[in-house]
Design a protein around this nucleic acid. Structure first.
Lengths: 122, 122
DNA sequence: CCTGTAATTAACTACTAGGTTAATTAACCG
DNA sequence: CGGTTAATTAACCTAGTAGTTAATTACAGG
């Protein structure tokens, strides 16, 4: 499972890591900045490790500036994951349509005029 | 990490499981159908386990029909994951724009007319 | 040069993930 | 009933994850 996509999804499968990405989406931050929201809950080395996971997944790029390690978001890998998901879009929109059709049916029953609620297609 | 989103991403972080989803996107299939492409590589119980992960993540719904267990895709959870990613779209499109701008610059150098390659904004 | 701050590494623990084989349950069918 | 097929459960193994504390590296600045 060292394939890129698996690594990406695995990296995203943790709320701490997702929060870090969210933070980085607001702009660069060094390790202690990133750690701040979690330091009550977990130690600094733990944060370093999470960061390393994100780095290996190529979701963040860590550079160095003196003793600091400024990190920035790298969304490339996210695009691949999003592209993968795109194949499935039809499936969740389909069920939305079914709900849509159902609601139209209910409406039709309340005010029984014609019939054949037309199903919105996206 | 028993939050829904983490479970979804974790379930997707495995090529076997993604392949199963792909198979299910073609239509219902029972366990042995799903297992077939992998049986050279892994045992049936292994497949059952992967399936259980997908089930707990609410990505597939397993019903029963006699001794068979027909499974169907349930994309609801995928939508949530896709929605989460949507927040980051700007970041990968941004870098695409930068590439875009760069290419325009290169073109401008080859045929040095005006300047200020206008950056396509999506 | 010494001290404080930023961050990582080391060494360890507990738990989970992904796989195995062997045994078990459940249903159909001749 | 007895055999066959579908699928799960049990028991086990290995490797990896998420966390800890304590020690270490690296740099800045008085």
């Amino acid at each position: 499972m060292p394939d890129q996509l698996s690594q990406t999804f695995a990296a995203l499968a943790d709320p701490t890591r997702r929060a870090m990405l969210a933070r980085l989406s607001q702009g660069e931050a060094n390790v202690s900045d990133l750690a701040k929201p979690f330091l009550g809950r977990m130690s600094l080395p733990a944060v370093t490790k999470h960061l390393k996971v994100l780095e290996k997944a190529k979701l963040v790029i860590k550079t160095r500036d003196a003793q600091y390690r400024p990190c920035k978001l790298n969304a490339e890998a996210l695009k691949d994951a999003a592209d993968w998901m795109e194949h499935y879009r039809q499936f969740w929109e389909e069920s939305f349509d079914r709900l849509d059709a159902y609601l139209k049916t209910v409406m039709a029953e309340k005010k029984p005029k014609k019939g054949t609620a037309d199903v919105r297609r996206r």
